[in-house]
Design a protein around this nucleic acid. Structure first.
Lengths: 203, 203, 203, 203
DNA sequence: AGGTAACCGAGACGGTACGTCACGTCTTTAC
DNA sequence: GTAAAGACGTGACGTACCGTCTCGGTTACCT
């Protein structure tokens, strides 16, 4: 997988040794074409050949930088600005959790949600892909939540014996569940789940 | 989809008109072969051709009774005895919920879990498949849980304003989440999540 | 290789066991398309994909019956009626040889000659292909010539100690040589070579 | 084509203007690598990329000096010392012809023969390549033979009306024929063919 | 008892996409 | 200006399955 390989290339100014440098134009064109095609097709029906054609790029160029279709799709989707996981400061720890949950639900609304659901789905058959998915998508959310939860345990807002891992399962689970069962996120769901989470995490 | 098509054919004793009757031997052989192959391959790498060969059956016979690979796989997996969802009676409503959760986790342990994860995954690209999945797998669990939750609301064990749908998301979510992120179900997870669910559902 | 596989199928009336029978229409379409394309392209630039497209046939169907492009081309070219090697009766043995030589030169004139030259050329890199080429093209000519030469030895028209194999090399060599060096066959060549052959074979 | 481009560059000592001079080391390395690879692979399976890698040279360097793979191979093979066509003096004209024939057969024995056969083969699809092949390989042999034949005509050893071109076809034909049909050159072939040639050329 | 209808296995069919390979070109830095 | 390095667009390869089709044959019911 190659999420944000852009940075890799530019590490410490000019580390580029010899040979023609990677074409950033092609790189961009590939991810653009992938995103474009995903608005009309499912991941399953998306083909590397179609991406190459749409991007005006050789198939080889795609396979040179990504090992397979899934990797391209993950890169294309997760490198979108909306998917960066920057944490807003919050008054209480639970507000932080809630903000995180809201943000994720917003990210998974509409087309993007379907695509992410398919990405999660396609990764099920391949342990490597699943590992990459966790690293490139879930890890950030996990870390952010873990931060809030630790903070809440320290401040006494959450129980001192709270199991962080299980808490995150309870927080992210409902979202992923709705995503994978094809239901969308409405205000009622958000409100009702939030209510239960508050009680579940209460000290 | 065609889960337990066996029953469909025999409805009201003998209503089949003319022609050679469906071969139950082939039917069984197909599902057996599918299960057998799934212990060595992922759903994605499983091919209808391989099933036909292993079952000693023509490809046509498979396509006559199931519309595609996913349907065969769902049938093969969900028709296993362990996947029947018979509810045990429980003292308290929460115990019922907890029993249901435990059972599901047991069903999704080991190989079966991986296969179900893949089934859920493969269904993401196809709304029809997703609908079938929900009907054939999640609906039963949903109904069972809804029963306990209603009962708990009536008895005052759970809050009177409890939103059933959201509660089920919170109950099933963590399990599906762990399933789809490749983590297995250990005793600690079961215990810690149960603790939080109890608080979340407390009146 | 699969030259005249048509016959193979019809061996002893109806030997067809089970499954959909081979489509003779596709078979014909493939060879036709190949011949058609060879009038505009060299063998090297001919692609199996192009044949499949032009014939309105799946690539798989071609690979099911021929192992590679060369085999298809050989089949397409050598199954043409003009390439059948039926021997005319002759007054003298040398006339038979001469007739055979004339016929071969006629077969290798124009487009067909170029294609055969390419077939011989492409076979050089692959011993298997070379063996097939000899069996499917040269063997017939060899046998026909060997017949005339034996007959001439018996009748005293040719020397009693004539080495058949070497004689055939001397007879066919000049033709193949001109073919492979890109020169065509004119009346002068035919006449002058014939003159020398007559002397070379004289008793 | 660029056979023995070595000479071209060094003409009149030092006439190179500016910039880095051509690397003779690379030039040698390319031809060496080509020869080396040809002992294990057929020309068809030989790739410019493999040559470049084996020679420790950029692909560009190869394409700067030769137009394509065939040209490199021809250069590599025909620039070998054994392929120079120096004529030995002969008592009779036929002995000269025979010596020339023997030499060619020796040159085309073993690995070299296979490679030349492939070179001739690969040239069939491309008129330009065929022209180069004739110029770089056959022309010398043609000229040498034409010399002997003219001399034999003048001296009365050969018929006065002998057609030189046809005679050369008859002389070289059998050798090329055996080469292209995959048979090697044994003493018997050499002797028997020589016998027939002597009769064919007799005055 | 014979007809007929739906089933069955086998396996060929037109397709689509795969991931790989080599082509000949282009674009860097280094000498 | 030439060299090595190596990325680029192109196009074909041979393979794997898809879901459909067409065979010869089999089993049952329904006249």
């Amino acid at each position: 997988m190659q999420v944000s390989s852009l940075e890799d290339v530019q590490t410490s100014d000019q580390m580029h040794k010899a040979g023609r440098p990677r074409s950033e134009e092609s790189h961009r064109a590939i991810l653009d074409a992938t995103r474009r095609l995903l608005t009309h097709n499912s991941v399953a029906k998306l083909s590397v050949e179609a991406i190459a054609k749409k991007a005006g790029v050789g198939k080889t160029t795609i396979y040179r930088w990504w090992p397979n279709k899934q990797a391209v799709v993950m890169d294309a989707v997760f490198s979108q600005p909306g998917f960066h996981n920057i944490l807003p400061a919050s008054a209480s720890s639970f507000d932080g959790v809630r903000a995180q949950v809201d943000k994720l639900m917003r990210q998974l609304s509409g087309k993007n949600g379907r695509v992410v659901a398919e990405i999660i789905g396609e990764a099920q058959g391949d342990p490597e892909a699943l590992k990459n998915l966790v690293e490139n998508f879930f890890q950030d959310r996990y870390n952010a939540l873990a931060g809030y939860l630790e903070q809440g345990k320290d401040s006494g807002e959450f129980p001192a014996d709270l199991d962080i891992e299980a808490a995150i399962d309870v927080i992210l689970g409902p979202i992923v569940f709705r995503l994978m069962t094809g239901q969308d996120f409405d205000a009622a769901f958000e409100e009702n789940v939030s209510l239960m989470l508050r009680k579940a995490l209460a000290a």
